[in-house]
Computed example of a mutant assay.
Amino acid sequence: MNPYEQRQRFRYQKENGTTSGMCDNYLQANMIVLPEEYAFEFLLFCLRNPKSCPIVDVLEPGVTKPKIADADIRTDLPRYRIFRHGRYEEEVQDIQSVWRDDFVSFLIGCSFTFEKALLEEGMNLLHQDQKKVVPMYKTNIPCEKAGRFNGTMVVSMRALKPEEVKQAVQVTERFQTSHGGPIHIGSPEEIGINNLSKPDYGQAIDFNSKERIPVFWGCGVTPQNVCLNAKPDIMISHAPGHMLITDKLEEKQ
Rank of each mutant, 00 (worst) to 15 (best):
P3F: 05
E5T: 14
T19A: 01
G21H: 03
M22W: 03
M22F: 04
M22L: 14
C23W: 00
Y26W: 09
L27R: 01
V33A: 03
E37N: 06
E37F: 00
E37S: 02
Y38T: 03
A39M: 04
F40V: 08
E41R: 07
E41W: 00
E41M: 05
F42M: 07
F42E: 02
L43F: 08
F45C: 02
C46W: 03
L47F: 07
L47H: 09
P50I: 04
S52Y: 04
P54N: 05
P61D: 08
A69C: 12
D70A: 14
D76W: 04
L77K: 01
P78W: 00
R79F: 04
Y80S: 08
R84G: 01
E89T: 13
V92D: 10
Q93D: 14
D94R: 13
D94L: 13
I95V: 15
Q96D: 14
Q96G: 13
V98N: 10
W99V: 07
W99H: 11
W99S: 12
D101Q: 12
F103R: 08
F103K: 02
S105E: 02
S105I: 05
F106P: 02
L107S: 04
G109D: 05
S111N: 10
S111I: 05
E115H: 05
A117S: 10
L119Y: 11
M123G: 11
L126V: 14
L126W: 05
D129N: 12
D129P: 05
Q130M: 12
K131M: 13
V133I: 15
P135V: 03
P135F: 03
M136R: 03
Y137H: 06
T139W: 08
N140M: 07
I141Q: 06
C143V: 06
A146K: 02
A146N: 02
G147R: 10
F149V: 03
F149P: 00
N150L: 08
T152L: 07
M153L: 14
M153E: 04
A159P: 03
P162W: 03
E164Q: 12
T172R: 01
F175W: 04
F175M: 07
Q176M: 13
G180N: 06
G180Y: 03
G181W: 11
P182V: 13
I183L: 15
H184L: 13
H184K: 14
I185S: 09
I185G: 08
G186V: 12
S187G: 12
P188Q: 10
P188I: 06
N194V: 12
N195M: 11
L196I: 10
L196V: 02
L196H: 05
K198A: 15
K198G: 11
P199G: 13
G202Q: 08
Q203Y: 09
A204K: 02
A204R: 01
S209R: 12
R212L: 13
F216G: 03
W217N: 00
G220V: 07
V221M: 13
T222F: 07
P223D: 10
Q224G: 04
V226G: 01
L228V: 11
N229C: 14
A230L: 10
D233L: 11
I236P: 02
I236S: 06
I236F: 10
H238F: 13
A239W: 06
P240V: 11
G241F: 01
H242E: 12
I245K: 00
I245V: 15
D247P: 06
D247C: 09
K248M: 15
K248T: 10
E250T: 09
K252G: 06
K252A: 09
K252P: 01
Q253W: 11
Q253K: 11
